[in-house]
Amino acid sequence: MKKSEMVFMGAEQLLVTENAVDQALTEAGELLAVLTRLRVGNGVSGVVGQPAVTAILNAARHLGEARKEMIDAHAHLDVVKTQLGCRTLMVGTLPDKPLPGHDTSDAGRVVPIPA
């Protein structure tokens, strides 16, 4: 397998993982919001379910820490990519129309750095 293919496959999975962590953090927030709306909307005391709320908040804090670690991993992998002799021209979703003066003919490709 070419180094550029290795880097591209790793980058794709990194983005999937980053998005999964963000989605989990979003879902934890939604869960807390739904449970709070249900409790308040039905006149249930705030004491009821407080241990569950605390657990959800702790889980969200851990997800926030996981998000930070993924960002750190992203930066470390950027160094690895360069150590392998590759550079990223662009990865991700392109806008509908390229920006003026920006060549996107190589968009989405990871290529070896010329010697």
Score class of each variant (00 low, 15 high):
Pro95Leu: 03
Val47Ser: 08
Asp103Cys: 02
Val79Ile: 13
Leu63Gly: 07
Ala115Gly: 08
Ala52Asn: 02
His74Tyr: 14
Leu99Phe: 15
Leu15Asn: 14
Thr17Gln: 15
Ala66Phe: 01
His62Arg: 07
Arg39His: 01
Ser4Glu: 15
Gly101Thr: 06
Lys68His: 10
Asp78Phe: 07
Gln50Leu: 09
Val111Thr: 08
Ala59Lys: 04
Leu63Glu: 01
Ala73Ser: 13
Lys68Met: 09
Leu25Trp: 12
Arg67His: 14
Met1Ile: 12
Leu84Glu: 05
Ala52Lys: 05
Leu25Asn: 09
Thr54Pro: 01
Arg67Ser: 12
Thr104Cys: 10
Ile56Glu: 02
Asp72Ala: 12
Asn58Gly: 15
Met9Glu: 15
Val80Glu: 12
Ala33Thr: 10
His76Glu: 15
Asn58Lys: 11
Ala11Asp: 08
Leu84Ala: 04
Gly101Leu: 05
Ala28Leu: 09
Lys2Gly: 10
Val53Ala: 02
Ala55Asn: 00
Val44Thr: 03
Ala24Ile: 03
Glu30Ala: 14
Leu38Trp: 04
Ile71Ser: 10
Lys81Asp: 04
Thr104Gly: 00
Glu27Gly: 08
Glu18Ser: 11
Asn58Thr: 12
Ala115Leu: 07
Val80Gln: 13
Met6Ser: 12
Asn42Ile: 03
Leu99Trp: 12
Val91Ala: 10
His74Ile: 02
Gly92Ala: 00
Met6Val: 15
Cys86Asp: 05
Leu84Pro: 00
Leu25Gln: 10
Glu18Thr: 09
Thr36Asn: 05
Val48Asn: 04
Pro51Met: 03
Asp96Tyr: 13
Gln23Trp: 07
Gly85Asn: 04
Leu63Gln: 02
Gln83Lys: 15
Val91Ile: 15
Val53Lys: 05
Glu18Leu: 14
Thr36Val: 02
Glu27Leu: 14
Val79Leu: 11
Gly49Lys: 04
Val16Lys: 15
Glu27Lys: 14
Pro114Val: 08
Leu25Arg: 11
Ala60Phe: 06
Glu69Thr: 11
Ile56Trp: 06
Ala115Phe: 01
Gly41Leu: 00
Lys97Cys: 06
Pro51Ser: 07
Ala60Lys: 09
Thr88Phe: 09
Met90Arg: 12
Asn19Trp: 03
His62Thr: 08
Leu31Arg: 02
Gly46Arg: 01
Gly108Ser: 07
Gln23Asp: 15
Met90Ser: 14
Val48Ala: 07
Glu18Tyr: 13
Gln50Tyr: 06
Ile113His: 07
His102Tyr: 13
Ala24Lys: 06
Gly43Ser: 00
Val47Pro: 04
Gly64Ser: 04
Arg67Glu: 06
Gly108Trp: 00
Ser4Leu: 08
Val79His: 11
Ala60Thr: 06
Gln13Trp: 14
Leu63Tyr: 06
Leu15Gln: 14
Thr26Glu: 14
Val53Arg: 01
Ile56Lys: 05
Glu30Trp: 03
Ala115Gln: 11
Ala52Met: 10
Gly43Pro: 01
Glu5Gly: 07
Thr54Lys: 05
Ile56Leu: 07
Leu57Tyr: 06
Ala55Val: 03
Val44Ser: 05
Glu30His: 12
Glu30Leu: 12
Val47Ala: 10
Pro112Tyr: 00
Thr93Ile: 13
Leu94Gln: 07
Gly46Thr: 01
Gly46Val: 00
Gly92Val: 00
Glu65Ile: 09
Gly29Tyr: 03
Gly92Tyr: 11
Val47Arg: 08
Arg109Met: 11
Gln23Met: 14
Gly29Ile: 03
